[in-house]
Amino acid sequence: MASLHTEPLITLENIHLTRHGKRLLDDVSLLVMPRQIVTLIGPNGAGKTTLVRVVLGLLQPDGGRVQRAGDLRVGYVPQRFVVPANLPMDVDGFLLLSGAGDARQRQQVLVDNGAGDLVRSPLRALSGGEMQRVLLARAMLRQPDLLVLDEPAQGLDVQGQEAFYALIARLRDTTGCGVLLVSHDLHLVMAATDEVICLERHVCCVGRPEDVGVHPEYRRLFGRDLAGLAVYRHHHDHHHDLHGNIVPDKGPEAAAGGQRDE
């Protein structure tokens, strides 16, 4: 079911948060609209996960304003999920614990996330990429208006990350949800991202990925810029090699302007 919201899903204005005498967030503002993908990037300790917890309502800021759309449904994919080695549960049982959806809906959401054949697989036997797709399926069972993902592709190789981010973009397109995504590599999320917020406890720079990628603050934090990297969006006429480099397609599909799933 597509999201019915047209107003901002989440608005944060001038957020301040201090814990144990340390300023974690300093005058941070953020806005996510329906059908928009906003990506938070920044070095370790920049406050990205802290900001996500404020968005989720798990942390209350010391100052500033947090406003959520009425009846906002949020789906969340954590940074990591450790399955106990002795947990006798399959994927369908794990999805059942979410309390959302019937058996048909659980199967369909797995299919939509490219994990339809995993429904009876033991949870502890899943690979990293399979587990991330199952976690994403569990979040999508809630039919969220806002999907929040904290480093969801951590531990995946370059190709796996690109495929996962392409999946997120497709889910946004088909459901109309907004997406707040935390990532450590702007290059890998450029295809899916509408806006980037570069964070170092405060907002260093904000804008389109191609603009942030050449911003002096981005170069200061990451020691490089993306000026020489192609920016690509949605309809692809290329694939990526093992190093994440763009390689143009030369087959009939590219000539016809078709889309290549990554």
Score class of each variant (00 low, 15 high):
residue 259 Q to V: 13
residue 239 H to M: 12
residue 49 T to C: 03
residue 246 I to Y: 13
residue 183 S to Q: 10
residue 18 T to A: 15
residue 53 R to Y: 06
residue 166 A to C: 02
residue 233 R to G: 07
residue 126 L to Y: 03
residue 16 H to N: 09
residue 150 D to Y: 04
residue 9 L to R: 06
residue 144 P to Q: 05
residue 209 P to Y: 06
residue 115 A to H: 09
residue 20 H to G: 06
residue 114 G to I: 07
residue 106 R to C: 06
residue 165 Y to C: 02
residue 195 E to M: 11
residue 9 L to C: 08
residue 53 R to V: 03
residue 173 D to Y: 02
residue 247 V to L: 14
residue 181 L to T: 08
residue 19 R to E: 11
residue 204 C to E: 08
residue 29 S to H: 08
residue 150 D to T: 07
residue 94 F to Y: 14
residue 24 L to C: 13
residue 2 A to C: 01
residue 12 L to I: 02
residue 237 D to G: 15
residue 189 V to A: 07
residue 24 L to F: 10
residue 114 G to T: 09
residue 152 P to L: 11
residue 176 G to K: 08
residue 148 V to K: 03
residue 79 Q to H: 06
residue 53 R to P: 04
residue 66 V to D: 00
residue 65 R to S: 10
residue 126 L to V: 02
residue 95 L to N: 09
residue 244 G to A: 15
residue 183 S to T: 11
residue 117 D to A: 15
residue 173 D to A: 14
residue 68 R to H: 04
residue 148 V to M: 03
residue 194 D to E: 09
residue 56 L to M: 10
residue 71 D to I: 00
residue 100 A to K: 10
residue 129 G to M: 06
residue 184 H to I: 11
residue 150 D to H: 05
residue 195 E to I: 13
residue 12 L to F: 03
residue 177 C to H: 12
residue 176 G to F: 05
residue 197 I to F: 01
residue 22 K to L: 15
residue 212 V to R: 03
residue 124 R to M: 08
residue 167 L to S: 02
residue 71 D to A: 08
residue 40 L to G: 01
residue 136 L to N: 10
residue 60 Q to A: 01
residue 63 G to E: 00
residue 117 D to N: 15
residue 222 F to S: 12
residue 210 E to N: 10
residue 82 V to M: 01
residue 71 D to R: 06
residue 167 L to K: 05
residue 171 L to H: 08
residue 92 D to G: 12
residue 213 G to R: 05
residue 196 V to L: 07
residue 193 T to K: 08
residue 111 V to Y: 11
residue 74 V to W: 01
residue 13 E to G: 01
residue 76 Y to D: 12
residue 175 T to A: 12
residue 96 L to A: 15
residue 259 Q to G: 07
residue 35 R to S: 12
residue 214 V to F: 03
residue 122 P to R: 07
residue 235 H to N: 15
residue 24 L to T: 11
residue 127 S to R: 03
residue 129 G to Y: 05
residue 104 R to Q: 12
residue 73 R to Q: 06
residue 10 I to W: 05
residue 240 H to P: 02
residue 220 R to K: 15
residue 149 L to N: 04
residue 29 S to T: 12
residue 257 G to E: 06
residue 218 Y to H: 13
residue 89 M to F: 05
residue 113 N to E: 05
residue 36 Q to M: 09
